[in-house]
């Protein structure tokens, strides 16, 4: 991991009507770092990711990418999305396009890259996640896990420097979770900078460099994974982690 700051978030605020979703979030992400954000539902963690690539407008604070402010209204989303890729919970591939067209469309239309080059890259990525034979398939012929892996490739082919993962395994059947998480683990090995929102605690522990615990629109705790999971520094994080544990529950 290099010691260069890639993403800097300062005093980020977000409100919906008179409901404040994000109160005052500041965070620095270094190049190659894997940040995992966890917290109860409704704590604002998804909104936080969406604020970073302009899917939501922000109501205060600023976001810097390589020391350049990217949260201004005049910054085009097309530029930001070249640098920051995102994958969602619902594996929303474009249903009218084949797998290969799903993957290459943005590279060709937004980045104006050559079709042949992009398709070659797409095939390489497909092979890497074990889906080389699905090139001409349509989304409805695929399983949830397969769709989600293709959604990842679709974001990765744009060569982003940061990837945002928003609960990418939350709507998958349990047996498909692993195949998707393995792709992310592969990315950590390549040194991809990532911000991951997830409920998979053991996965979080395995991949995270740092854990951020969000509650009520605020960062409650920031910690390294071992400390966070074994001996959380705050009571609220402790309570949250306990809700995932069943060893104190005795049936019979």
């Amino acid at each position: 991991m290099e010691n260069k700051t890639l993403l800097r978030i300062e005093h980020l605020k977000k409100t919906f009507g008179d409901h404040t979703i994000l109160k005052d979030i500041s965070m620095e992400v270094k190049k190659g770092e894997v940040i995992v954000i966890i917290g109860p539902s409704g704590c604002g963690k998804s909104t936080f990711l969406r604020c970073l690539n302009h899917l939501e407008t922000i109501d205060g604070g600023a976001v810097y990418f390589k020391d350049e402010c990217i949260s201004g209204k005049n910054i085009s989303r097309a530029v930001i999305c070249q640098h920051i890729g995102m994958v969602f919970q619902s594996y929303d591939l474009f249903n009218h396009l084949t797998v290969i067209d799903n993957i290459t469309l943005a590279a060709i239309q937004v980045q104006h890259r050559k079709k042949a080059e992009v398709e070659q890259a797409a095939r390489r990525l497909l092979a890497r996640v074990g889906l080389a034979d699905k090139e001409t398939a349509y989304p409805r012929q695929l399983s949830g896990g397969q769709k989600q892996r293709i959604a990842m490739i679709r974001a990765l082919i744009l060569n982003p420097e940061v990837m945002l993962f928003d609960e990418v395994t939350a709507s998958l059947d349990p047996e498909m979770v692993r195949e998707v998480l393995d792709v992310i683990i592969g990315l950590t090995r390549q040194g991809m900078t990532m911000l991951i929102v997830t409920h998979e605690m053991s996965f979080a522990r395995a991949v995270a460099d740092r854990i951020f615990f969000f509650d009520d629109g605020q960062i409650i705790e920031e910690n390294v994974p071992e400390r966070f999971f074994d001996k959380p520094g705050t009571e609220r994080a402790g309570q949250f982690l306990n809700s995932f544990k069943f060893n104190s529950v005795k049936v019979k």
Binding site: S76, R77, C81, F88, D92, L105, A106, V110, A155, L158
Partner: peptide, 23 residues
């Protein structure tokens, strides 16, 4: 057309016009 289609398109950097035209 589900909202997600608009959003995943937007997250890939498509402009409004491209979003409508291609997706």
């Amino acid at each position: 057309i589900p909202r997600n289609q608009y959003e995943s398109g937007a997250a890939l950097g498509f402009s409004k016009i491209q979003l409508y035209r291609f997706i």
